[in-house]
Amino acid sequence: MTASALYSHSTTGPSEDSVAKRPRGRPRKTEEERDDGNRRQALLTAAARLFRDQGFDATSTRDIAAAVGMHSGSPFYHFKSKDALLFSVMEEGMHAALARQASVLRGASTAMNDPLAHAPLMQIRRLIRAHFDTLLGPGNDFVPVMLYEYRSLSPDQRASLARLQADYESAWTPVLEALHASGHLRAPVKLSRLLILGALNWSVQWFDPAKGASLDELTDAALALFLKES
């Protein structure tokens, strides 16, 4: 604030030129405010990693703040509580998974006029590969936290995540139905979806990229395990 504004009741008021040049509208954001989005994302990423490595109960907000170079109380500027941060981690993971899944279902190969781009076998391969990317690829802490810390959520938070999970799983149903109709899938569709996703999710417990298996190889193995050759 300028000195003229501080002394607006003095006998000598601000000049017409200074009034004309006074900025209008919302005040310019501070550097801290401009960086809010980045700092919030940094907190989510750090929290996801720590919740996964240490568990929700064993991780303090001080741990999370320290991981991103903040003061211990700074996370509460972005999130009301550690519980709210946990929910945001899971929500972020589900939104990213949905976006990745939608992208692969649109099909990169359609750009090359591939007539098989939307064939059920191609679609299920893309779904499985995208799911492995979500669980095991770069920035892969978010959804595994949801798998193992779901009990820590409130009923309202669980209901909100359940809607996102339903949206995610709904993309699998028509593909599995087509595979069932063609004879590639012999088990009932609903049970197949639950069993396939359950098996894929368990990979976060045992997968070790240092042992040599790639995500493509995992995808091929899953297809061979769950689907019958035509």
Rank of each mutant, 00 (worst) to 15 (best):
Thr2Pro: 03
Ala3Ser: 09
Ala3Cys: 05
Ser4Val: 04
Ala5Trp: 11
Ser10Asn: 06
Gly13Ser: 09
Val19Gln: 08
Val19Ser: 10
Ala20Ser: 08
Ala20Lys: 10
Arg22Asn: 10
Arg24Glu: 03
Arg24Gly: 09
Arg28Leu: 12
Arg34Lys: 13
Asp35Asn: 07
Asp36Phe: 08
Arg39Val: 10
Ala42Gly: 14
Ala42Asn: 15
Thr45Met: 04
Thr45Trp: 07
Leu50Asp: 11
Asp57Tyr: 14
Ala58Lys: 08
Ile64Met: 03
Val68Leu: 15
His71Asn: 15
Ser72Lys: 15
Ser74Arg: 15
Phe76Ser: 11
Tyr77Thr: 04
His78Cys: 10
Lys80Ala: 15
Phe87Tyr: 08
Ser88Trp: 11
Val89Asp: 01
Val89Ser: 04
Met90Leu: 03
Ala97Tyr: 02
Arg100Glu: 07
Gln101Thr: 12
Ser103Trp: 00
Val104Leu: 00
Leu105Asn: 03
Gly107Gln: 00
Ser109Leu: 00
Asn113Pro: 03
Pro115Tyr: 05
Gln123Ser: 07
Gln123Asn: 13
Met146His: 01
Glu149Tyr: 13
Leu153Lys: 01
Ser154Asn: 08
Gln157Ala: 05
Ala162Asn: 01
Arg163Gln: 13
Arg163Gly: 07
Arg163Tyr: 11
Leu164Ala: 06
Ala166Pro: 04
Tyr168Lys: 06
Ala171Asn: 14
Thr173Gly: 11
Pro174Lys: 11
Val175Asn: 11
Leu176Pro: 14
Glu177Pro: 07
Ala181Tyr: 15
Ala187Pro: 14
Arg193Ile: 12
Leu195Gly: 13
Gly198Gln: 13
Trp202Phe: 09
Val204Pro: 01
Gln205Lys: 05
Gln205Asn: 14
Gln205Ala: 06
Asp208Ala: 09
Lys211Ile: 03
Thr219Ser: 11
Phe226Ser: 07
Lys228Met: 12
